[in-house]
């Protein structure tokens, strides 16, 4: 555990809680991609199956349970409790174009050809692109609520901090996981355009709106 890993995890947790609170307090999931949230629930489910097979630490187990619990709670709020506010017409990204290639790639390129390891690999690859339906939705509507941009910023920051964590671990522990690193770089790069808009607009007090 190093400072980048810890702040990365906390940033991830902050993102998840910001989104849950936003939906709960406003009683609305307008502007939120339910498809991205389903993908994240799938990511956590396939990655954390090792909860049943190996114990790493109390911290590790607690965070996994919180992430999974919050992911399903978010999906429940969007598709059940506040379904009437869900903007399905704008959430039109075709997720099969992500899930099918990612599934194929995880069978082809993995550390070990075993069911749990393939599912872990699938979750890593899927996480790297799971935000695309949300970014697609924002590009379609041309705007995002400020609280939604805070959510996205924390979510992008989390993976960027993990990149520093991996650099740290490579130098001080000789540890590297090529699958996680490459997918993490892809994931972080997908946020770069958003990071730019966040810094130049949202942090200066303006709403995030894209030019028509």
């Amino acid at each position: 555990m190093n400072i980048f890993r810890l702040t990365g995890d906390l940033s991830h947790l902050a993102a998840i809680i910001i989104l849950l609170l936003k939906i709960w307090k406003s009683r609305s999931c307008a502007g939120i991609s339910g498809k991205s949230q389903i993908l994240f629930a799938l990511v956590f489910t396939t990655r954390y199956l090792d909860l049943f097979t190996s114990f790493i630490s109390l911290y590790n187990t607690c965070m996994k349970l919180i992430y999974i619990g919050c992911a399903y709670a978010t999906v429940y709020l969007i598709y059940a409790k506040f379904r009437a506010t869900y903007d399905g017409n704008h959430d039109s990204f075709r997720v099969e174009f992500l899930v099918v290639p990612v599934g194929g790639l995880s069978v082809l390129i993995n550390h070990d050809f075993s069911p749990l390891e393939i599912l872990w690999t699938f979750s890593i690859y899927l996480e790297s692109v799971a935000i695309l339906p949300q970014l697609f939705m924002i590009s379609k509507t041309g705007e995002a609520e400020t609280i939604t941009t805070h959510y996205l910023f924390c979510l992008g920051l989390y993976r960027a901090l993990y990149l520093f964590n991996w650099i740290w671990r490579f130098y001080f522990e000789g540890f590297f996981d090529m699958i996680a690193i490459v997918a993490g770089v892809v994931q972080t790069v997908l946020y770069c355009d958003f990071f730019y808009l966040y810094v130049t607009k949202v942090l200066k007090g303006k709403k995030l709106s894209l030019p028509a």
């Binding site: 890993r5 097979t53 790493i56 630490s57 590790n60 965070m63 550390h111 390891e117 993990y162």
Partner: peptide, 10 residues
């Protein structure tokens, strides 16, 4: 590579 006991990252 990965640890023997799985992945410690979240």
């Amino acid at each position: 590579g990965t640890d023997d006991d799985g992945h410690d990252e979240l």
